[in-house]
Design a protein around this nucleic acid. Sequence first.
DNA 1: GTTGCTTGTATTGCATACAATGAAGCACTG
DNA 2: CAGTGCTTCATTGTATGCAATACAAGCAAC
Lengths: 233, 233
Amino acid sequence: MATRGVSVTNKLREAVLGGDYAGGTRLNEVDLADALAVSRTPIRAALSTLAAEGLLEYRPNSGYAVKTFAAKDIEGIYVVRANLEGLCARLVAQQGLSDVHRGLLHKVLAESEELQTVESWTDEVSDLWRDLNDRFHNTLIEASGNSHLAMMLRKSRAIPLLNQLKFRWFDMGTLARAHDDHSQIFAAITGGQVVRAESLAEEHVYRSGQRIIEHWRKMDTRKPAAGTKARAA
Amino acid sequence: MATRGVSVTNKLREAVLGGDYAGGTRLNEVDLADALAVSRTPIRAALSTLAAEGLLEYRPNSGYAVKTFAAKDIEGIYVVRANLEGLCARLVAQQGLSDVHRGLLHKVLAESEELQTVESWTDEVSDLWRDLNDRFHNTLIEASGNSHLAMMLRKSRAIPLLNQLKFRWFDMGTLARAHDDHSQIFAAITGGQVVRAESLAEEHVYRSGQRIIEHWRKMDTRKPAAGTKARAA
DNA sequence: GTTGCTTGTATTGCATACAATGAAGCACTG
DNA sequence: CAGTGCTTCATTGTATGCAATACAAGCAAC
């Protein structure tokens, strides 16, 4: 078993990414210590780690707060992410896929294909697709063999609150399009079409980013009172 | 004045980036606490922060060690960084430069031009150029107005040991070429040549990366005994 | 000589006590 | 009544003691 510090860090990270705390929420050390049944020490370790990861904001003598993201921030993040995913696809197309990775991607695409047959977009389908989507992108990242790129992309994908939003608003048409994008990217990669792989991947991410920003904006304006210092119950 | 934790973090970060510790060096908490005349608590905070930043590696119940970078890692980092700097230049070219930023860049280029007249490449010149180079790139990043991109680039440029290597091996020819690159990039941006700005910036970083990898490789093979557990005096 | 166990020691993990800081409320003054 | 300074309290910052873990040296058995 890992140390308390590590497991608290993971728990807290999940909570923040999962949207358990509103943006701007201040995280009180003793409350967290109570809630997780540990002392303040591992809590502090976790908080400083998450702050360095960019999920929290730190102000000396004042503590940690969940970082807030405006729609404009999300836009900036997605521009970067699109570029990096494009780079990733290009690298993979250049150096070719290993049998293992090709197998994994093939499996993901087959399961995605199967998912097309469902009737309507339920939460269950949403979860399934999220898993497939993650597996597709993660496999590509792994196949690039570039650990720094992997780290950057991980950071670009870890945005508080986003997880609870992502894919909930999907419909079958959007799913079909996303699945088609994945297929095309895969085809371009296996076909050694380097430039095309890059463009497709970049465009794929960019488009899904546009959609997310749209919905983020709605969510943002729905509770503008938050402003600079939102507070949770 | 900031808290001890913060200032220790900064001191340690500088030390690691400046190459005070060999790659793989284990950082002992009590030794550091002694050396910096604080208790272990702020030391631990600093270590966990730096680990999250990717400068140190953490192993539960074993402590923190300076992350080691093989030439291949540097290569991977520079591929990413080149891409991001390209994106940065593109964004700036798209949205145009503010008067302030144009002024700053102009000043940097003027000073760089002046630096061309020196006779030989001394350490002093090296420091001057490092400053100018940083200012050029940082201004561009700031002008992009994308804080996430800024963060990613900061992480891509913060590599332990690199600072002590960078530019020491330059010569006047290399300087001339780098300065010319900067000028061209600036021209492309002010001229609104979006694609050209991107290509130039990407290529500029990529090339300087190639040079650095070369020298890193030399440095790497000079002390291969280090292996997995190099140790500093 | 090698393998496995045991024990000792160095080092990290955690909890807690206390100090320091900052923010909110209060009385006091103009 | 507005504004200012003080007091108080909640909260974070730091130090330190003790517990737990990992690693290495030494020993014993084969």
